[in-house]
Deep mutational scan, measured.
Amino acid sequence: SDYEVNVNGIHHRFHNISEELIKFIEEALRRGEDLREIIKKVRELLG
């Protein structure tokens, strides 16, 4: 049904976003950045 496609589409989009965010955060932590600064950047990215 349309509803299922829609829900799956939304889930898929969020899954991709969270994968990208996790990579972004892991790389920043590897560079020794402060978690609070990383979260601030993530918030800015998400608008």
Rank of each mutant, 00 (worst) to 15 (best):
K23T: 07
H12F: 03
V5A: 03
K40N: 15
I22N: 01
I22C: 01
V42F: 06
K23V: 11
L46C: 05
V5R: 01
L35H: 03
R43E: 15
I39F: 03
I10R: 12
E26V: 07
S1C: 05
V42K: 02
V7N: 05
R36I: 12
R43A: 15
K41D: 08
I39S: 04
H15A: 12
S18N: 09
V5T: 02
D34Y: 07
F14T: 00
G9Y: 00
K23E: 13
Y3G: 00
E26D: 13
I39G: 04
I38K: 01
D34A: 10
S1I: 15
L35K: 02
K41G: 08
L35R: 02
E33V: 13
E44R: 09
E37D: 13
H11L: 14
V5M: 03
F24K: 08
H12G: 05
F24H: 08
I39L: 07
G9F: 00
L46I: 14
E37I: 12
E27F: 05
L46K: 13
F24G: 05
H12Q: 05
H11N: 09
I22F: 05
N6P: 02
V5S: 01
G9V: 01
N16E: 06
A28H: 13
E20P: 09
A28P: 01
L29F: 10
L45Y: 07
N6F: 02
R30Y: 14
N8M: 00
D34L: 10
Y3F: 12
V42E: 02
D34F: 08
G32M: 10
E37C: 06
R43Q: 10
D2S: 04
I22W: 05
I17L: 09
N16S: 06
I39N: 03
K41V: 11
R13D: 13
S18C: 03
L46A: 12
I17G: 02
K41W: 08
G47D: 12
A28S: 11
V42Q: 02
E27M: 07
G47L: 15
S18V: 05
N6A: 05
E33A: 09
E37K: 07
E37N: 12
N8W: 00
R36F: 14
G9L: 01
A28G: 09
E27K: 08
Y3I: 04
K41H: 13
S1F: 14
G32E: 14
I25P: 00
E20C: 05
L45D: 08
S1W: 11
L35W: 06
G47I: 14
E26C: 03
H11G: 02
E4N: 05
K40W: 06
G9C: 03
F24P: 02
K41P: 00
I22V: 08
I38F: 03
N6T: 13
H15V: 09
G32D: 15
I17D: 01
L46E: 11
A28C: 05
H15Y: 03
E26P: 00
G32A: 14
F14E: 02
H12S: 03
I17V: 15
E4Y: 01
K40D: 13
K40G: 10
I25C: 02
I39D: 05
L45I: 11
S1L: 15
N8I: 01
I25F: 05
E20F: 11
K41C: 04
L35M: 10
H15G: 09
I17H: 00
E37M: 08
I10D: 15
L35C: 04
K41L: 10
L35N: 02
Y3T: 01
V5F: 06
E20Y: 07
R43V: 12
L29H: 05
R43D: 15
H11R: 09
E44G: 12
D34I: 08
F24C: 05
E26G: 07
E20T: 13
E44K: 09
S1A: 11
K40L: 14
L46Y: 05
H15D: 11
L21E: 09
N6I: 15
E26A: 06
L29P: 00
G47W: 04
R31D: 07
K23L: 11
G9S: 03
S18G: 09
R13A: 13
L35D: 03
E33R: 11
R43T: 15
N6C: 04
K23C: 03
N16I: 01
E44T: 12
R13S: 13
V7G: 05
R36L: 09
E37F: 07
E27P: 00
S18K: 05
E33Q: 11
A28F: 10
E19F: 12
A28T: 09
E19N: 11
K40P: 09
N6W: 01
N6K: 09
E37S: 13
S18E: 05
G9W: 00
I10V: 11
L21V: 14
E26S: 06
I17S: 04
K23D: 11
S18Y: 04
F14D: 02
I25T: 02
I22T: 04
E4D: 11
K23I: 11
E20Q: 14
R43F: 09
E26Q: 08
L29N: 05
L45Q: 14
E20I: 09
I17P: 05
